[in-house]
Write a protein that binds this DNA or RNA. Structure first.
Length: 852
RNA sequence: GCCCCUGUGGCGGAAUGGUAGACGCGCUCGACUCAAAAUCGAGUUCCUAACCGGAGUGUCCGUUCGAGUCGGACCAGGGGCACCA
């Protein structure tokens, strides 16, 4: 049983064995403690990439480690199978999205299996299975009945290339997240989920997530954007002759008051105008009677939503001629404007402007010559210090503000809110940046929204017994847009209420709906309902969730919302879906460009004799930055041939080495070769160093026990790179040690320690060592705490904090002895130059620091 | 603009306030070989030919017997949000 370890043979052998013995099928009813390890499920693009390999290897190490520790582990895999690429393929190649997706899934499942992941394939789920999305439709109806779903005519982000509506989260820098096309605004009737009902819970819940990265919690907190302030009303009046203008009458008829929200009620005496959004009903009322206003509003809307457009846009306004009465001074009138920078979606869609202390208000005031009045002064300023070239934001004392003068910003905020609540013209309120979640998408390849539109009854839910609403198969993609909308026979429905002719909802769900509950379906998958409450709760929450940081906001927030919504309707008694979260870094690679500036892929580049990079034709190549593997930069490395050449274990090992898992990992051929060398070194030990030798080797045994402790600790903390380094050290130590019984034992332990990372090698070695059963089922080695400490320790001897000498002494040497040994050191004496030390600090078993 | 993170050899990175550079990659030298590959051994922060010694964790300042680690200011790189009142 010697020679080289051959992954081509071993990988397949053990993968089959694990499958035959149903090793990784999770048993909900076993008496063992349960743990749920989950990696974000992939989109079935057709091939796995290095990012997948890294992600799933990390999860697999944890799952296998927990198994060996005696846990019943749920470690499932599935497919986030709906989405636009399938439709794009349909359009480009004339294949059906379903067939395209299914064959991609088959190919990727194969690839994943070749990496030897300890997955429970019996629970495999694809979101495009009617068995999955039918239950999703049922859950949606549950939420609908609970009042968490509503329909709203709303302005949406319209992607002109993909012909679909995008969520705010899918608009990046004003461009569609997939197409990259500048997003336009359109009005459409959409289904919304009331995620804002849960805004407070979703912020407060973050505090309970102590096994989440702070970065992700912070991003979610900022995204929800909770801020406290005052909501209050201004009474409106017309002034003089303007009272008779038709638009003034129309506005006052629409509303005799305008309501605003502010986080700075303390600056209320600094107000110099009131402004409403161009989308505000009040503005629309004016526009209906005033063509200039109508033109102004139309202008505002024509501006794109791109970052550049917003950034460079001038503050512009339309003076309505109306005035607002200051709530704290009935004599004081503020002009009312329609202003392009006021958002309808935030707060009340109206503001009062304080130019001195808000940059936007400041710019607006400059533009239209409105008063700029200081109401907060720093200690070095007084009430008459003019405001400079921009608004001031700092802390200070309130000035020019009547009864508020002399108060701090915070005191003044409380005072104004109290006054407003007593006077009945306003109240304390919290505003959120978070908007409700629009889930309608004008696409074919998604979950059909189970609703029917009846001209008489309005939107009516599809009766439960008619679920699932299946996607029709006979569709064509030869023209852009939603094929469901053109499918007359599918579209036609009977109204469940009145029995009349009706039209089926042709929109499908945002795919983030599909991924908002798949982890629940993994835990429990009965035929007749989405999940069984008790079974699901026996696994949930997910103990460790692993995926890319790009989902820090979208997916993770939606899944948290969905879980809370399920709790709200009594379907699942879980607050948070993911107890632990880990966001792994990307896999990166150098980029290369040829002489003509084109990107070159790594296999088109080689080194010439002098070490210069050249392309196939021998032309010189410039080395670019190390970047995330991407098709556009052509710096991807396909895992499949690498696995075929080096074996699954070498690839897995390399994915875990070198870089800490949360950071980026740079792919290198040297790295994978190093990993392959390690595999052979372990194999050599397993086949040569096990049987021979007698007697104890206490030093090696200590090293072994320290390694057991350190590797376990590192995996628990998901610091795989450290676990890897520990195993390298142990292997070196065993290789150097002379034959002994301790050495043979060390090899048997080493194989188990390496098993989560290199499972095929470990099984093959375990068998070679003559051990019974599978190492996958073996027990994780235990360490003896007494063996973690050495008898002899190395004392560092410092003079003035600088290392001058080291001493090997017995552990537990007392302070005075340590001190005298240190002072006796020749090197210390030379440093002291005959002077007595001023002070000596002794840290037992660590160091002696002599202050000269 | 606001919020956050990260700066350590040629490279990826280790280091409960206590011997900076574990481990890997790369490189150098050596062994084996007719030769090469593979493998094994030794070395590898910088300055000093070498020793002795000195410098050194982005920069500056501070706290401490002692700072990569703690505090402050700055510089550089990266990320998130962004007309959110």
């Amino acid at each position: 049983m010697t020679g080289r370890f051959d992954p081509a043979v071993a990988d397949v052998r053990w993968q089959k064995r694990w499958e035959d013995e149903r090793c990784f099928i999770a048993d909900t009813d076993s008496g063992k403690p349960k743990t749920y390890v989950l990696e974000m499920f992939p989109y079935p693009s057709g091939r796995i990439h290095m990012g997948h390999v890294r992600n799933y290897t990390m999860g697999d190490v944890l799952a296998r480690y927990r198994r060996m520790q005696g846990f019943e582990v749920l470690h499932p895999m599935g497919w986030d199978a709906f989405g636009m690429p399938a439709e794009n393929a349909a359009m480009e190649r004339g294949v059906h999205p379903d067939g395209w997706t299914r064959s991609n899934i088959a190919a990727m499942r194969d690839q994943l299996k070749r990496l030897g992941f300890a997955l429970d394939w019996s629970r495999e789920v694809a979101t495009c299975d009617p068995e999955y999305y039918g239950h999703e439709q049922a859950l949606f109806l549950d939420l609908y009945e609970a009042g968490l779903v509503y329909r709203k005519e709303s302005e949406v982000n319209w992607d002109p290339v993909d012909h679909t509506v995008l969520a705010n989260e899918q608009v990046i820098d004003g461009k569609g997240w997939r197409s990259g096309a500048p997003v336009e605004r359109r009005k459409l009737s959409q289904w919304f989920l009331k995620i804002t009902d849960f805004a407070d819970e979703l912020v407060d819940g973050l505090k309970t997530l102590d096994a989440w990265p702070d970065k992700v919690k912070l991003m979610q907190e900022n995204w929800i954007g909770r801020s406290d302030g005052l909501r209050f009303r201004f009474k409106l009046v017309g002034e003089g002759a303007e009272c008779d203008y038709p638009w003034v009458k129309a506005a006052l008829a629409c509303s005799p008051e305008v309501e605003v929200f502010t986080t700075r009620p303390d600056t209320i005496f600094g107000a110099s105008f009131v402004a409403v959004s161009p989308d505000h009903p009040f503005a629309e009322a004016i526009a209906s009677q005033n063509p200039d206003a109508a033109r102004f509003i139309a202008d505002c809307k024509s501006v794109g939503t791109s970052e550049e457009a917003i950034e460079s846009q001038q503050k512009r306004g339309f003076a309505t001629g109306l005035e607002a009465i200051h709530p704290l001074d009935p004599e004081w009138r503020l002009p009312v404007w329609i202003a392009n920078f006021v958002l309808m979606e935030y707060g009340t869609g109206a503001i009062f402007g304080v130019p001195a202390h808000d940059q936007r208000d400041f710019e607006f005031a400059r533009e239209y010559d409105l008063p700029i009045r200081r109401v907060v002064a720093r200690p070095d300023q007084d009430k008459d210090t003019p405001i400079g070239d921009e608004a001031e934001h700092g802390e200070g004392v309130i000035v020019n503000s009547g009864f508020l003068d002399g108060l701090s910003v915070e005191e003044a905020q409380d005072a104004v809110i109290r006054r407003a609540e007593e006077g009945g013209w306003g109240k304390r309120e919290t505003a959120y940046r978070l908007r409700d979640w629009g889930v309608s998408r004008q696409r074919y390849w998604g979950t059909p929204i189970p609703m029917i539109h009846c001209s008489g009854c309005g939107p009516v839910p599809v009766p439960r017994e008619q679920l699932p609403v299946l996607l029709p198969e006979n569709v064509s993609f030869d023209i852009p847009g939603n094929p469901l909308d053109r499918n007359e026979s599918w579209k036609h429905a009977t109204c469940p209420k009145c029995g009349g002719d009706a039209r089926r909802e042709t929109d499908t769900f945002d795919t983030f709906v599909d991924s908002s509950w798949y982890f629940v379906r993994f835990a429990s998958q009965p035929m007749d309902k989405p999940f069984d409450k008790a079974d699901a709760e026996s696994w949930l929450p997910v103990d460790q969730y692993i995926g890319g940081v790009e989902h820090a906001i979208l997916h993770l927030l939606y899944a948290r919302f969905w879980t809370r919504a399920l709790k709200h309707i009594g379907r699942l008694d879980i607050d948070e879906p993911f107890k632990g979260l880990f966001t792994q870094g990307m896999v990166t690679h150098e980029t290369y460009r040829g002489i003509d500036g084109r990107w070159l892929s790594p296999d088109e580049v080689r080194k010439d004799d002098s070490g210069q990079l050249i392309d196939a034709a021998g032309a010189s190549v410039t080395r670019g930055r190390v970047e995330k593997m991407s098709k556009s930069k052509r710096n991807t490395v396909d895992p499949e041939p690498i696995v075929a050449k080096y074996g699954a274990d070498a690839v897995r090992w390399f994915m875990l080495s070198d870089s800490p898992p949360e950071r980026d990992l740079e792919w290198s051929i040297g790295g994978i070769e190093g990993a392959a060398r390690f595999v052979q070194r372990v194999w050599k030990l397993a086949t040569t160093a096990s049987a021979e030798g007698e007697g104890a080797d206490p030093a090696l045994t200590r090293k072994l026990h320290r390694t057991i402790a350190a590797v376990g600790e590192a995996i628990d903390a998901l610091q795989f790179n450290k676990a890897v380094a520990q195993l390298y050290e142990l292997v070196s130590a065993i290789e150097k040690a002379p034959p002994s019984a301790s050495r043979a034992e060390a090899v048997r332990v080493l194989v188990r320690l390496a098993a989560p990372m290199a499972p095929h090698l470990a099984e093959e070695s375990w068998a070679a060592l003559g051990q019974d059963g599978l190492v996958a089922n073996a027990e994780w080695p235990k360490f003896d705490p007494a063996l973690l400490v050495e008898d002899q320790v190395t004392l560092a001897v410092q003079v003035n904090g600088k290392l001058r000498d080291t001493l090997t002494v017995p552990r537990g040497l007392d302070r005075t002895e340590a001190e005298s040994l240190a002072l006796a050191s020749e090197k210390v004496q030379r440093q002291l130059g005959g002077e007595p030390p001023r002070k000596v600090i002794v840290v037992p078993d660590r160091l002696v620091n002599i202050v000269a």
